[in-house]
């Protein structure tokens, strides 16, 4: 009797259908235990060739850029409205004159650029000249067809500057090098290396909020007044085209 029972047990193991059912149940358990990981992995491998590629990434980026530019436009409009309310100077992007650099003397005793737009095109002495990166200088003199731009780096050239983080004013003075000196009015300037220097939002001579450079070195103990060395964001040595802002003439 006992022998017969043993035969029955082993007989089941030898049948192929048993193993098929066993494996099927094991598979089900495995799927349940891994929460369908195998299926998901397989699906992701299958989907890989048709996943969002570089083109789609560019579409997304383009969409983001459009969204940003719309936001910027809204903010600019808001800014103009508020500046009007406060009777402050405005930066109007429509009143710009593009000009090519026809002569460059950016490392001599006088650091200047000659550009191919002059009084005939509405350029006036004292107008602001910007390039890719921010402010590069002011118009020093004009002829009917050309203008001479005095660079921020020219020794002795002084313009007002503003540090937005600390809300402090200073005078940016050209030293001949690519790094002008920012002289502070306060005895404790509180600036740090890496602070952005811009034109003053309340300036009556220069358009507001134009980027000038980044602070590279600070001497808070200097006498008679503390100073910082500013690395300009616009490099006059590499600029071939500039824009003259008409609204501060």
């Amino acid at each position: 009797m006992i022998k017969a029972r043993r035969n029955i047990g082993f007989h089941l193991l030898l049948k192929s259908r048993f193993w098929v059912i066993f494996l099927f149940i094991a598979l089900l358990f495995a799927i349940r235990w891994t929460k369908g990981a195998g299926y998901l992995d397989f699906y992701s491998i299958l989907l890989k060739p048709i996943l969002p590629g570089t083109a789609q990434r560019e579409w997304i980026k383009e969409g983001e850029n459009i969204e940003r530019s719309m936001r910027l436009k809204l903010l600019e409009e808001d800014n103009i409205r508020l500046r009007k309310a406060l009777s402050l100077k405005q930066l109007n992007s429509d009143q710009r004159i593009s000009a090519a650099v026809i002569s460059r003397s950016s490392r001599n005793w006088w650091q200047l650029l000659e550009i191919n737009k002059g009084a005939k095109d509405g350029v006036l002495k004292g107008q602001t000249v910007i390039g890719p990166g921010g402010l590069i200088g002011l118009v020093d003199s004009t002829t009917p067809l050309t203008s001479r731009v005095r660079l921020l780096t020219d020794p002795g050239h002084q313009v007002g500057a503003w540090i937005d983080r600390t809300k402090q004013h200073g005078i940016l003075t050209g030293m001949g090098t690519n790094r002008p000196k920012l002289i502070f009015f306060n005895k404790k300037p509180l600036v740090k290396i890496g602070d952005v220097v811009t034109t003053s939002p309340a300036s009556t001579l220069l358009p507001p909020n134009l980027t000038i450079g980044i602070i590279q070195f600070v001497d808070a103990q200097a006498l008679p007044s503390p100073y910082a060395i500013v690395q300009l964001t616009a490099s006059p040595e590499a600029i071939d085209w500039v824009q003259i802002l008409k609204n501060n003439g």
Binding site: P155, I171, G176, T177, K181
Partner: peptide, 25 residues
């Protein structure tokens, strides 16, 4: 001569930064 004139005209240039640049030029 130009160096001396610039120092005379602009008091802000009486410091080491400008002098190093002038020597270089």
């Amino acid at each position: 001569s130009i160096w001396a004139q610039k120092i005379f005209i602009y008091s802000s240039l009486r410091n080491n930064w400008f002098h190093s640049w002038s020597i270089y030029i």
